[in-house]
């Protein structure tokens, strides 16, 4: 199959990622390049003592260090062994985690897929390696690193096959994914963060792996303000937990307060550890969300 034919076939398999979506991705790609211009090109840099050519810092010698990095001139002046540190230029991977638990439902999952695809497209456009991971109560499925822009259709196909299932246990999924040796990179988690095991707990795992984190919090209007009233039985979409309850305006107000507090908890955690946090609602245009992400500098920066 020729490249053109394969591309056409890939586009045919785009599924929910229709032509309109693809046009928006192209636009985002152009815009992202403009936004990122003057920063870095195809690579990300990490403060890693290595074979780079750009001086980064000094530090004292400890046994085991490479003698080639010793600054002999400084030794002659100071009579101390001091190591010169260089930044090693390397491409950083982008890990995009899409929450596919039952709580996401179709609406949030579709939105999450679009956001994930868009971020992946932007990443591939900037020659980054993009890993796609679908998780729920563990890693459900992952797509190995994609490097070229043309591989976006692999991502589309991958995401097309995703449906919501299982309960949420992000910590288990992160633990399993990062249990394997993973290079430091940017971890994007797109989820509603309804994790009974705790969002902070799961983010801690990412943090311990020294990954940079961008949390994209997807909520529906119903999550924020449930359209409920009167005598109802609440049923959890994941656990089948149910509770008879009388919804009154006061109770609804209390729920809204709790919801806001919950979102603030997540945001506070992210702020505390220097992570990015974006909250979006499903009726918010995803391309505008991507632009906000770009402007925030939390992605590809």
């Amino acid at each position: 199959m020729s490249t053109a034919a394969k591309t056409a076939a890939d586009r045919h398999d785009a599924g929910p990622f229709d032509e309109e979506f693809l046009r928006k991705l192209e636009l985002l790609s152009v815009v992202s390049k403009r936004l990122l211009a003057g920063q870095f090109k195809a690579e990300r840099r990490a403060k890693k003592v290595g074979s780079g050519i750009e001086f980064a810092d000094y530090r004292g010698y400890v046994p085991g260090d490479d003698f080639r990095a010793v600054d002999w001139r400084a030794y002659m002046r100071l009579d101390r062994l001091i190591l010169r540190l260089f930044e090693e230029e390397t491409d950083l991977p982008v890990y995009i985690f899409v929450d596919a638990s039952k709580s996401m439902g179709k609406r949030k999952l579709d939105y999450a897929k679009r956001v994930a695809a868009a971020l992946a497209y932007v990443g591939l456009s900037n020659l980054d390696k993009v890993h796609m991971v679908v998780y729920a109560d563990g890693v459900i499925e992952e797509l190995p690193a994609q490097r070229t822009k043309s591989q976006i259709f692999n991502i589309f196909r991958f995401l097309n096959g995703v449906s919501s299932s299982h309960e949420t246990h992000a910590g288990r999924a992160f633990h399993r994914f990062f249990g394997a040796s993973r290079r430091r990179g940017i971890t994007v988690v797109i989820s509603d963060f309804f994790d009974p095991h705790g969002v902070g707990h799961s983010f801690d795992i990412v943090r311990y792996q020294r990954q940079d984190l961008l949390a994209v919090h997807v909520v529906t209007p119903e999550d924020a303000v449930p359209p409920l009233n009167g005598e109802i039985t609440l049923v959890d979409s994941e656990t089948e937990w149910n509770q008879d309850i009388t919804i009154t305006p006061a109770l609804l107000s209390a729920y809204c307060d709790v919801f806001d507090e919950y979102c603030e908890e997540i945001e506070r955690y992210c702020t505390l550890y220097g992570f990015g946090y974006m909250r979006t609602i499903t009726n918010f245009p995803f391309e505008d969300l991507i632009m906000q992400v770009m402007r925030s500098g939390r992605f590809l920066s």
Partner: peptide
């Protein structure tokens, strides 16, 4: 009571 499916009981439990 009529049943109402919610994404998660997490917040309701709180």
């Amino acid at each position: 009571h009529r049943r109402a499916l919610v994404s998660s009981s997490l917040l309701w439990e709180r």
